[in-house]
């Protein structure tokens, strides 16, 4: 590429990045400004409260409960998703290749069903869930697994496509390994980064979920933020900002995991 064009490209780059960057950073700055307002100048009161977990539990019990619920839902969703999806995908690749298209279709189907529509259909199903296992907010995990399915499927599918599952499992089987060993000690270690990114994506998605939790009258972080917004807007805005920044850190870390995989493939 010649120097003149490179200069022009880099000029255009800044011409695009600066205004858009301003557009995206302005609300974040506004949130910070909003939470440090006081009658006379600035105060960090909200932030000292937020740093003190015990204080939150005392002053905003629904918020601390929401945080705990969201973390538990995220962990359970990631685990349940992996337990259900990984063996199925491996098995379909090995033994039932004709099922691959239907499986892909089913896994991507939730993309075309808006969460709000899923809620409408899930309401009667959840009447049964409540009947059998109770009305705990953790039962949302069942719905969340469906919600994260398309993203998890894509991540895992890319991971499985990069290795030769068939040869690996046949080699292991011929050495006397059972299916459990094949899955746990041969396939899983080979798709570690795909599993990790599927889990990360699920966690990020669950931590940001609002629609289903709110309409099924369960609790989680986003429901708590929304509820608090009606009584004390400052704390809601502060928690929103924190959760956005934390999600960014999580996905930024993920970008390095993905990068390592790519460089390993090319080497």
């Amino acid at each position: 590429m010649n120097a003149a064009r490179r200069r022009k490209q880099s000029l255009l780059r800044w011409f695009v990045l600066v205004p858009l960057g301003a557009f995206f950073l302005l609300p974040l700055y506004a949130m910070l400004e909003f939470t440090t307002r006081s009658a006379d100048g600035r105060t960090a009161e909200v932030w000292t409260t937020l740093l003190d977990w015990r204080q939150i539990q005392e002053d905003y019990p629904e918020l601390s409960a929401g945080v705990v619920y969201s973390l538990e839902q995220a962990a359970l969703t990631a685990v349940l998703m992996l337990v259900l999806l990984v063996p199925t995908m491996v098995w379909v690749r090995l033994r039932l290749p004709w099922l691959r298209r239907p499986l892909e279709f089913l896994c991507l189907l939730p993309l075309t069903i808006p969460a709000i529509v899923l809620v409408v259909g899930l309401a009667p199903v959840y009447a049964w869930v409540t009947y059998f296992v109770g009305g705990s907010s953790l039962t949302l995990t069942f719905a969340y697994v469906v919600l994260v399915l398309p993203f998890a499927y894509r991540a895992l599918d890319a991971g499985l496509a990069a290795i030769d599952v068939k040869t690996l499992s046949e080699a292991a089987r011929s050495l006397g390994a059972g299916w459990g060993t094949v899955l746990w000690r041969v396939v899983l270690p080979n798709i570690r980064s795909a599993v990790l990114s599927a889990a990360f994506l699920s966690v990020a998605l669950v931590l940001g979920e609002f629609t289903i939790a709110a309409l099924l009258n369960r609790e989680n972080l986003q429901v708590a933020i929304n509820l608090l917004g009606k009584s004390s807007a400052t704390i809601s805005v502060a928690v929103s900002l924190v959760s956005l920044v934390l999600a960014f850190v999580l996905l930024f870390a993920l970008s390095f995991v993905g990068g390592r995989r790519r460089s390993k493939e090319t080497s």
């Binding site: 302005l26 609300p27 986003q222 959760s243 956005l244 970008s255 390095f256």
Partner: peptide, 26 residues
């Protein structure tokens, strides 16, 4: 590239309620 794509992934998928409060504050 890393920063922009990660930030975009957050805003595109995570948004929801937090964005409402972001604009409320803005």
């Amino acid at each position: 590239r890393r920063v922009v794509t990660s930030a975009c992934a957050v805003l595109a998928q995570f948004g929801g309620v937090t964005l409402a409060f972001a604009f409320y504050a803005t």
